[in-house]
Protein backbone atom coordinates (compact mmCIF):
# COMPACT_ATOMS: atom_id res chain seq x y z
CA UNK A 1 0.00 0.00 0.00
CA UNK A 2 1.16 3.52 -0.82
CA UNK A 3 2.24 6.26 1.61
CA UNK A 4 -0.96 8.13 0.74
CA UNK A 5 -3.03 5.14 1.82
CA UNK A 6 -1.41 5.04 5.27
CA UNK A 7 -1.66 8.81 5.71
CA UNK A 8 -5.39 8.51 5.04
CA UNK A 9 -5.81 5.59 7.45
CA UNK A 10 -3.96 7.41 10.26
CA UNK A 11 -5.85 10.64 9.53
CA UNK A 12 -9.17 8.77 9.60
CA UNK A 13 -8.42 7.06 12.92
CA UNK A 14 -7.36 10.34 14.56
CA UNK A 15 -10.38 12.17 13.13
CA UNK A 16 -12.73 9.52 14.50
CA UNK A 17 -11.02 9.83 17.90
CA UNK A 18 -11.73 13.59 17.94
CA UNK A 19 -15.40 12.89 17.13
CA UNK A 20 -15.87 10.22 19.79
CA UNK A 21 -13.24 11.44 22.27
CA UNK A 22 -14.94 14.50 23.69
CA UNK A 23 -17.92 12.40 24.72
CA UNK A 24 -15.77 9.53 26.03
CA UNK A 25 -13.83 11.89 28.30
CA UNK A 26 -16.88 13.79 29.51
CA UNK A 27 -18.97 10.67 30.20
CA UNK A 28 -16.36 9.57 32.80
CA UNK A 29 -17.63 12.29 35.10
CA UNK A 30 -20.85 11.70 36.97
CA UNK A 31 -21.65 15.36 37.39
CA UNK A 32 -20.71 18.12 34.99
CA UNK A 33 -19.66 21.37 36.62
CA UNK A 34 -22.02 24.28 35.72
CA UNK A 35 -19.10 26.23 34.26
CA UNK A 36 -18.18 23.31 31.99
CA UNK A 37 -21.85 23.11 31.05
CA UNK A 38 -21.90 26.85 30.24
CA UNK A 39 -18.69 26.51 28.22
CA UNK A 40 -20.12 23.62 26.20
CA UNK A 41 -23.30 25.57 25.51
CA UNK A 42 -21.06 28.23 23.91
CA UNK A 43 -19.43 25.68 21.58
CA UNK A 44 -21.67 26.05 18.49
CA UNK A 45 -21.36 29.85 18.30
CA UNK A 46 -17.66 29.82 19.24
CA UNK A 47 -16.48 27.20 16.74
CA UNK A 48 -18.71 28.17 13.81
CA UNK A 49 -17.67 31.83 14.17
CA UNK A 50 -14.03 30.91 13.62
CA UNK A 51 -15.03 29.38 10.27
CA UNK A 52 -16.52 32.71 9.15
CA UNK A 53 -14.39 35.49 10.68
CA UNK A 54 -11.10 35.12 8.75
CA UNK A 55 -13.01 34.74 5.46
CA UNK A 56 -14.99 37.90 6.27
CA UNK A 57 -11.79 39.77 7.11
CA UNK A 58 -10.13 38.78 3.82
CA UNK A 59 -13.30 39.56 1.84
CA UNK A 60 -13.90 42.63 -0.33
CA UNK A 61 -17.11 44.70 -0.62
CA UNK A 62 -19.03 41.93 -2.41
CA UNK A 63 -18.20 39.33 0.24
CA UNK A 64 -18.98 41.68 3.14
CA UNK A 65 -22.29 42.72 1.55
CA UNK A 66 -23.28 39.07 1.10
CA UNK A 67 -22.55 38.30 4.77
CA UNK A 68 -24.44 41.40 5.95
CA UNK A 69 -27.47 40.44 3.85
CA UNK A 70 -27.29 36.89 5.22
CA UNK A 71 -27.18 38.15 8.81
CA UNK A 72 -30.11 40.53 8.24
CA UNK A 73 -32.28 37.83 6.69
CA UNK A 74 -31.51 35.55 9.64
CA UNK A 75 -32.40 38.33 12.10
CA UNK A 76 -35.69 38.88 10.26
CA UNK A 77 -36.48 35.21 10.86
CA UNK A 78 -35.82 33.93 7.34
CA UNK A 79 -34.97 30.24 6.94
CA UNK A 80 -31.63 28.80 5.87
CA UNK A 81 -32.42 28.34 2.18
CA UNK A 82 -33.84 31.88 1.56
CA UNK A 83 -30.87 33.35 3.44
CA UNK A 84 -28.39 31.23 1.55
CA UNK A 85 -29.84 31.87 -1.93
CA UNK A 86 -30.28 35.63 -1.43
CA UNK A 87 -26.74 36.04 -0.09
CA UNK A 88 -25.35 34.06 -3.03
CA UNK A 89 -27.32 36.22 -5.48
CA UNK A 90 -25.92 39.40 -3.87
CA UNK A 91 -22.40 37.99 -3.98
CA UNK A 92 -22.54 36.91 -7.63
CA UNK A 93 -24.20 40.18 -8.71
CA UNK A 94 -21.70 42.42 -6.89
CA UNK A 95 -18.71 40.40 -8.09
CA UNK A 96 -19.88 40.93 -11.67
CA UNK A 97 -20.63 44.65 -11.18
CA UNK A 98 -17.44 45.43 -9.25
CA UNK A 99 -15.30 43.22 -11.48
Amino acid sequence: MSTIFWIIVAGAVLTYLTRAGGHLVLSRFERIHPRVEAGLNAVPAAVLTTLVAPAAMEGGPAEIAALVVAALISLAGGGMMPMFLTAMAVLILLRHLLG
Binding site: A66, L67, S74, M80, M83, M88, L91, I92, R95
Partner: peptide, 20 residues
Protein backbone atom coordinates in the same frame (compact mmCIF):
# COMPACT_ATOMS: atom_id res chain seq x y z
CA UNK B 1 -17.56 34.38 -10.79
CA UNK B 2 -20.10 31.86 -9.50
CA UNK B 3 -19.25 32.69 -5.88
CA UNK B 4 -18.42 29.05 -5.14
CA UNK B 5 -15.38 29.86 -3.00
CA UNK B 6 -17.59 31.82 -0.60
CA UNK B 7 -20.49 29.36 -0.23
CA UNK B 8 -19.28 27.91 3.04
CA UNK B 9 -18.64 31.15 4.98
CA UNK B 10 -22.21 32.26 4.13
CA UNK B 11 -23.58 28.89 5.17
CA UNK B 12 -21.61 28.88 8.45
CA UNK B 13 -22.76 32.42 9.22
CA UNK B 14 -26.35 31.20 8.84
CA UNK B 15 -25.59 28.49 11.40
CA UNK B 16 -24.01 30.98 13.83
CA UNK B 17 -27.13 33.19 13.55
CA UNK B 18 -29.30 30.17 14.34
CA UNK B 19 -27.89 30.09 17.89
CA UNK B 20 -28.46 33.77 18.66
Amino acid sequence: ALGIDFLLPIYFLGLVMGFR
